[in-house]
Simulated scan of single mutants.
Amino acid sequence: MKKLLPLVLVLCCFVGFAQEENEMEQELQATVINAQTDFPLESVHVINLNKVKGTITNKKGEFTITASVNDTLYLTYLGFKPQKVKVTNDMFKFEDTKISLTELAFALEGVTVRPYQLTGYLEIDVKNLPINDAYQYSISGLNKSYEAGNKNPSAVTKVLGAILNPADLLRNLFGKKPRQMRKLQQMKQDDDIRNLLASKFDRETLTELLQIEKMDIDDILNNCNYSKSFITTANDLQILDAISSCYEEYKVLNRK
């Protein structure tokens, strides 16, 4: 038994050292290439989903990002399929790590344009045009106003009605996934992530970062009384700011 004790201590130290090595942050360098041509891809957005840090590739397709073993990198590039890559020890040991992205094939669908039936008489045409009765609101960090729903509650009342409902998704999501919601502030502070979200409208990067479904995003914004036109037309950065604003209001009310 006494002979086994030193061996057990050595094993414990080894396991502890291995775990510490896996969790240690390092600078990861790699190259992103086109899977079909092997050519490097410039301006690919690379996001560490665990660290909530982003960067982009240079002209040679190279990038450097802070990462630890078992972190997940999320790569996006216009016209290519998004890729998730698990960080391994080998990616730090070898300098020639290459990540391939596959091109997407797009099929354009027919678009039917239906202009308003205008007569040329102002009195008649004004009555035929649809009326947008949505109120305007502003999102932090953006110098524009956007539509709210068909109500005009205050910031507090807007969320209060949702929180008072025990089955409401807003409270369920914010209450059960506080760690994902805390990522909101980290995402807003990273310029590379903000620039990427400002150019995207598909919600894919948001769902990966927050670990929620697209329908959850729609439900959150609906419960915060954002209009359907905003939910369907806003870019991902505007959606991020809207969710962040709603979450901050929820935290204030929840503390009370």
Rank of each mutant, 00 (worst) to 15 (best):
K3Y: 06
L4K: 01
L4Y: 03
C12P: 00
C13E: 09
A18R: 10
E23M: 06
E25H: 15
Q29D: 00
Q29G: 02
A30G: 06
A30Q: 03
A30T: 01
V32T: 10
N34I: 03
S43L: 15
S43V: 13
V44W: 11
V44Q: 13
I47F: 13
V52F: 06
K53M: 12
T55Y: 05
N58C: 12
T66K: 00
S68Q: 08
V69Y: 09
Y74N: 01
L75I: 00
L75E: 00
K86D: 05
K86H: 02
V87L: 00
N89I: 01
D90A: 01
G110E: 14
T112V: 15
R114L: 14
Q117W: 04
T119V: 04
L122G: 14
D125G: 12
K127R: 11
D133M: 08
E147M: 11
E147W: 07
G149M: 11
A155V: 04
V156D: 15
T157F: 10
G161P: 12
G161L: 07
I163G: 07
N165M: 07
L169A: 11
R171L: 12
K176R: 15
R179Q: 06
R182L: 08
Q185N: 11
Q189I: 09
Q189W: 14
N195S: 07
L196S: 14
A198F: 08
S199E: 10
T205Q: 04
L206T: 03
T207Q: 08
E208Q: 12
Q211Y: 13
D218S: 09
L221N: 10
N222E: 08
C224I: 02
C224Q: 10
Y226N: 04
K228P: 15
F230A: 07
I231R: 13
D236K: 03
Q238K: 03
C246A: 14
E248T: 03
V252T: 07
